[in-house]
Design a protein around this nucleic acid. Structure first.
Lengths: 345, 345
DNA sequence: CCGATTTACTAAACCGATTTCATTCCGGAT
DNA sequence: ATCCGGAATGAAATCGGTTTAGTAAATCGG
């Protein structure tokens, strides 16, 4: 056999003339329990043999995997990419790894992913999906997994959340449009499964109400959170009579789709129709005209969520259960040039 | 104690009146070795007790983690998001999980990540980074990890790669510009650590050579692969005399930065300067003017890489070592409206 | 109907670490 | 000289599965 087995802790122990227990202690960085001299000798032999710990074995015994699950609706969407980036940066600082799961907005896939993650003994779970169901998260919690929700809340689930104030934000957007004189404002929403979706609509209604404008069901264009849906929403908008003078698209993909649809329809922004998007992206500034949108702090949300999870993990085994926290971040409306007073009829 | 321990395979075995071995076989879906009746009884009791396997324990013994590592330069960048999406979709079909690592183009971080991944006993590793070094990958391979490189190749490393033909693609871009009559064409490149970067420049040179145009060092604007760098590259471009009439930005971030810089400088595209970008994004079509760019098939590359990795993993333990493969995907140039013949001086 | 397989199944070893508990060793207090 | 407490260390149990080796019973061919 010309292929050498990779050295285990046992090998290091033998080579250093100590027991596995000592090697374990030294390599885990436990100060007490060994002479500086012994510690150094162990470290040297480990290095010399090219020893690398097997975290799988370590996790089995210690019941900690130092791994968390990250569930996203769509990694390819830069908004979720931002969340992933924030989560990863905070967690890997502390030696945690993140297992990525892409749900594609399928509850079935989401459930399957949670199950696999639980089997893999994750310590925590961060989810940014629009799952309307709580049970699979519940099951994870029952098996000792700490759950933190990002971007959306799941009714009936006792878990930390990191979100923006979707109601207030949407209200501000629509308020801005109203102040410019718009009276018929359409909104493109998702399927209303997620709270962010529902809350954005609520904010829209609230703004209208505050300005004494009747809520018109026909002006809410329900779509699918994807570009395709945004584009088709524009088609429906064109059939409205009188045609709305302003439009609020409630996520980045639909904003993009709306832009495509509007361009195809030949509607000039903001002369013929005002538009406010969501999930601000750098390229919004490069559109013609530069697009106003809500800046949804994806990276920060991910970072904060990871941070919350870490402190929760650190506080395990405490006498008192930590109460759940609902963190709310700022989501400013960045105004560029896609809104203007409505055209004179 | 009001808190019940989660059931183990032992518990299921006892409850079903069989041995652990039988439970293991049944749940692993091994047909032979148990009566359909026994199998069913085991499955039922497992379900009744709410049993969930501990993959950590399984992995320890079986020496397979069904987990692969995915190293990306920047998850927040939609190009890498696309790769991640492709990888995840292919792998999770087969029950594999993916651990995400963000290198942020730091070799040091990349090394640290590889180490952690190896410790976590990943079965394979897919990397889409611009690491110039091979040693950490080498070390992973020595420890039995199958490595597949995406988007870039690492000299001195014996590993499968999935890329596009960067030379030919760049050559086509510059050829297109030359055919329109441009003679002074600038190129914005990265730091030249990665092969994709170097090959794109080579393609540029080749196109020039083929058209009998001298290569001018001053026209290659070396940047950092980020938007910031693209923007500053434009500043340097403006100082060139005579000013180039066309510009080729070699990745999505720099393309975006160039767009910002050009807008700030007030240069009209394509009247005053032609521009071709890279890593086509949907929003390129929404710019003013719609931007021509190379479509880099991120999702597909990820998918193919994952596929390659899977077949490699499946073929482990075979007598003959599988030879490395270098898969090359198509990267079409999508022409929109950002190029035109150079302005008459 | 008998020896030879084959099949269903179990007991026990094993994977490679962590953790518990016992032991040894030491200097200092009595 | 003796006793004591704490620090250093090691032996062995443990985590929860998979895998191997072995056994008893069922099946088969002639």
């Amino acid at each position: 056999m010309e292929w050498r087995r990779r050295p285990t802790m046992e090998d290091v122990a033998k080579a250093a003339g100590v027991s596995k227990a000592t090697v374990s202690r030294v390599l885990a960085g436990i100060e007490s329990g060994s002479t500086p001299a012994t510690a150094e000798r162990v470290r040297q032999t480990a290095l010399r043999l090219g020893y690398v710990v097997n975290s799988i074995a370590a996790s089995l015994r210690s019941r900690q995997s130092f791994t968390i699950g990250l569930l996203l609706a769509d990694v390819a969407n830069p908004f979720f990419g931002g969340i992933a980036s924030g989560v990863e940066s905070r967690l890997s600082q502390t030696g945690y790894s993140v297992i990525l799961g892409n749900t594609g907005n399928s509850l079935e896939r989401e459930r399957a992913l949670v199950r696999v993650l639980v089997e893999k003994q994750i310590d925590g779970l961060i989810a940014a999906t629009s799952a309307a169901s709580a049970e699979h998260f519940h099951e994870a919690q029952e098996r000792g997994v700490q759950v933190v929700l990002v971007d959306s809340d799941v009714p009936g689930l006792e878990a930390d959340t990191v979100t923006i104030d979707n109601r207030a934000t949407a209200e501000a957007v629509v308020g801005h449009l109203l102040e410019q004189g718009h009276r018929r404002i359409a909104i493109v929403t998702g399927p209303m499964d997620a709270t962010f979706d529902r809350h954005r609509l609520e904010g829209y209604r609230r703004a209208l109400a505050r300005h004494g404008i009747a809520y018109d069901e026909a002006l809410v264009l329900r779509a699918d959170l994807l570009a395709e849906g945004g584009e088709r929403a524009v088609d429906r908008l064109l059939e409205l009579d009188p045609r709305p003078t302003a439009l609020f698209a409630t996520n980045n993909m639909m904003t993009q789709g709306v832009l495509v649809g509007l361009r195809r329809a030949g509607l000039r922004i903001p002369d013929e129709i005002s538009l406010v998007g969501f999930d601000d992206q750098d390229w919004y500034a490069l559109c013609h005209p530069p697009l106003s949108a809500v800046l949804n702090p994806a990276y920060e949300m991910g970072h904060v969520a990871a941070d919350r999870l870490l402190t929760r993990l650190a506080g395990r085994g405490e006498r008192v259960e930590q109460p759940v926290e609902h963190l709310v971040l700022d989501a400013p409306l960045v105004l560029r040039a896609s809104t203007a007073p409505p055209p004179q009829a």
